[in-house]
Design a binder for these strands. Structure first.
Length: 282
DNA sequence: CTTTGGGCCTGGACGC
DNA sequence: TGCGTCCAGGCCCAAA
């Protein structure tokens, strides 16, 4: 499911429930995720107080009062569901891998049918050096990540700009959907070499990235396939997609005759689908 | 060093 | 209804 806006939505939903809460029990039903859930996961968490819930790139970071940190990732199909005290908590299904129960009676359930997600432990003091964290690029919604900074990071990069946007070392948090949408908004061809996205193009791209992510966040993320917010509401940014998943549809902004042009194209780059308008994007 | 492609998993959509 | 095929928002890792 989740790219930056979806993970941020999850993070914002979890924060008021978990921050300050003491973990009463952690039930692990499935240890086999992208990386195994560590054997001491339960022991390290129970009776600890959660002090902070944060996001870095597409990772959730849940910090404990003893300096422990849970690194969580939702993979492609991961979901967090919040049950407030008194809510009816359904019996766990086969994909409900971990329950975090806090003393107030609230419960957070991690589910992930495809098990590409992960839930592991580290320590706050060494978090920044953790293999999963240390190579992450800057956060695109950080205001000091400018077009010039992006251009600098793309220097010498021989891959396509589309593939570069998916590289978490260059920009953290973009996935296939928001990479496609950002390129469309900025009028840049996904096939352009990344190193040639400089100057005004890089500025426009960075503005597009930030506006797409901000609007998606305001919509509660995109609900395609099974992504829903932890409160059960559907995000609705998928209604705003201009190219993603719209192969053959007329381009929403150029008034070319789409019966002639064929409208939005789908191509494969580095094994991933890219959607774009060849007329608007150069 | 950089870049690409395979693989990890399951479920849903589609064609026959 | 059932079966096979293809596809999916991510990321690690081996290979080129």
């Amino acid at each position: 499911m989740p790219e930056l806006p979806e993970v941020e939505t999850v993070c914002r939903a979890l924060s008021p429930v978990l921050e300050g809460a003491i973990l009463q029990d952690v039930v692990i039903r499935q240890f086999s995720l992208r990386f195994p859930v560590p054997p001491n996961f339960h022991e390290k968490l129970v009776s600890r107080r959660i002090v902070k819930v944060q996001r870095r790139a597409k990772y959730l970071l849940i910090e404990l009062d003893d300096g422990g940190v849970i690194i969580g990732h939702l993979g492609m199909s991961g979901r967090m569901t919040i049950y407030r005290v008194g809510d009816n908590v359904p019996l766990p299904g086969r994909h409900d891998h971990i329950d975090f129960k806090v003393v107030s009676g609230d419960l957070v359930r991690f589910s992930d049918p495809r098990r590409f997600g992960l839930m592991i432990l580290t320590e706050a003091g060494i978090l920044k050096e953790h293999a999963l964290i240390k190579n992450l690029g800057p956060e695109p919604l950080n205001p000091d990540f400018t077009g010039a900074a992006l251009a600098d990071r793309l220097k010498g990069c021989k891959s396509s700009i589309k593939s570069a946007l998916l590289d978490q070392r260059k920009v953290a948090g973009l996935g296939n959907i928001y990479a496609c949408e950002s390129l469309f908004r900025s009028g840049i061809s996904p096939n352009r070499r990344a190193k040639n996205v400089q100057g005004i193009r890089a500025i426009k791209l960075m503005q597009a990235v930030q506006s797409v992510l901000t609007e998606a966040l305001e919509a509660g993320g995109s609900s395609i396939r099974d992504h829903i917010q932890p409160n059960g509401k559907l995000g609705y940014f998928q209604k705003c997609f201009q190219v993603y998943g719209r192969e053959g549809a007329p381009c929403p902004t150029c008034n070319c005759d789409w019966l002639v042009t064929g409208g939005i194209k789908r191509i494969i780059q580095a094994g991933r689908s890219t959607f774009y308008c060849p007329r608007k994007q150069r």
